[in-house]
């Protein structure tokens, strides 16, 4: 098998589109991507429909539920409130980029599994991406920061308790156990 080495070419949009087109290049999960996008295409739809990265979910398309959260240049953002064309040049990470095929789950993913911080799994990738950014900080974020970040996501299944436990576990693993207050 000959594996291509050039930028990955997103599937051509299969439709006539009455608006301008743009050639955008960005990095998705470490891989260079070149895609032709219409102005109005949302980043969430670029990822899901053109690049096949359906782990990023869409729950409200007005920025409240957080299911579509991805990392853009290292920080969590709503991919439903970002135009694909705005992501030109950006480094985007999705849940698919956290652990490669054949690799074990990453620490954040493992924490959600071990703490039963998920049920239907639909909101989970968003939570996992926000938590990944938290564990990637230079120092352990304080409780207030963690609470603030988590409030940017809706979960309808768990009641949040186990999600908070999962985030604590992931932070403990990254920064060492939290000192008692």
């Amino acid at each position: 098998m000959n594996v291509g080495t050039g930028p990955r070419r997103a599937q051509q949009p299969p439709l006539p589109e009455p608006t301008a087109w743009h050639e955008v290049s960005l990095t998705v999960n470490g891989e260079p991507v070149a895609a032709q996008v219409e102005s109005r295409l949302l980043l969430s739809d670029l990822l899901r429909q053109r690049l096949g990265l359906t782990g990023t979910h869409v729950g409200c398309e007005h920025g409240v539920c957080g299911a579509c959260t991805v990392l853009m240049d290292g920080v969590p953002v709503r991919s439903c409130l970002t135009l694909a064309v705005q992501a030109a040049g950006a480094d985007v990470r999705t849940v698919e980029g956290l652990a490669g095929d054949g690799e074990p789950l990453g620490p954040v993913q493992r924490a959600f599994h071990e703490q039963h911080g998920m049920q239907c799994g639909f909101c989970t990738p968003g939570f996992v991406m926000t938590c990944t950014a938290l564990t990637g900080r230079a120092e352990r974020p304080d409780e207030e920061t963690v609470a603030d970040e988590l409030s940017g996501h809706l979960c309808r299944c768990t009641g949040y308790q186990n999600i908070r436990a999962a985030v604590r576990q992931a932070l403990d693993e990254s920064f060492g156990p939290q000192e008692a207050e």
């Binding site: 359906t54 782990g55 999705t94 698919e96 789950l105 993913q109 039963h116």
Partner: peptide, 20 residues
Amino acid sequence: PRVEDERLLRGHGRYVDDIR
């Protein structure tokens, strides 16, 4: 712990909108 988690945590769930 649940056997369904790993696939979902990798973003490999297949909800209806993912099956195109």
